[in-house]
């Protein structure tokens, strides 16, 4: 099956949650099946969608509290891709009592805001109700903290771990 929705995780080694790449894949499949296919969005259409989520330490000059979303998408017509970007302040995770759970919840929240803001036919309450279907037992069975090789953040290979 063609992959119509992709999540890209990015962040410097000391400013990102050490989660397995399987977390990302789980959310891709979850939202594809439960939301996008269910609502007839993206799947089977002309465009594939990539959502790049950047983790970044918070600083006093940052103008947003927790997360921000790029205004609009970058369109690559030759590949039929629309790429959206979001930033999460890593401090929200680093300072959390349960950082792994916080990471899972924040990724869920980012994807929720992205989908409901971009595709108005999906209401926030619809995705809120799906939270109960998240298989936390599976996610918590994955290695955490995961090794760098297991994390497979986007661009790790390209940057030679220098990000």
């Amino acid at each position: 099956m063609e992959k119509y929705f992709e999540i890209l995780l990015l962040g410097e080694l000391n400013e990102r949650p050490p989660i397995s790449h399987l977390v990302k894949e789980y959310f891709e499949n979850f939202f594809l099946e439960k939301v996008l296919a269910e609502k007839g969005i993206i799947v089977g259409g002309k465009w594939k969608v990539s959502l790049a989520i950047h983790f970044q330490e918070k600083g006093p000059m940052a103008t947003f509290e927790d997360m921000a979303f790029a205004n609009g998408a970058r369109t690559i017509a030759s590949e039929s891709i629309k790429m959206y970007s979001a930033v999460i302040h890593y401090n929200l995770i680093k300072d959390a009592e349960k950082p792994y759970l916080q990471t899972i919840e924040l990724i869920y929240k980012v994807v929720k805001v992205f989908i409901t803001s971009t595709y108005k036919k999906v209401k926030p309450t619809f995705i809120d109700e799906l939270w109960n279907e998240i298989d936390l037992n599976y996610l918590f069975s994955l290695p955490y903290p995961a090794s760098i090789e297991e994390q497979r953040y986007f661009l790790d290979e390209v940057m030679g771990k220098q990000v």
Binding site: H54, Q56, I76, S78, E79, M83, V163
Partner: peptide, 11 residues
């Protein structure tokens, strides 16, 4: 901080 960008041409 690194941003990823896909450009026409595939890469």
């Amino acid at each position: 901080m690194i941003f990823c960008i896909k450009l026409p041409g595939g890469l």
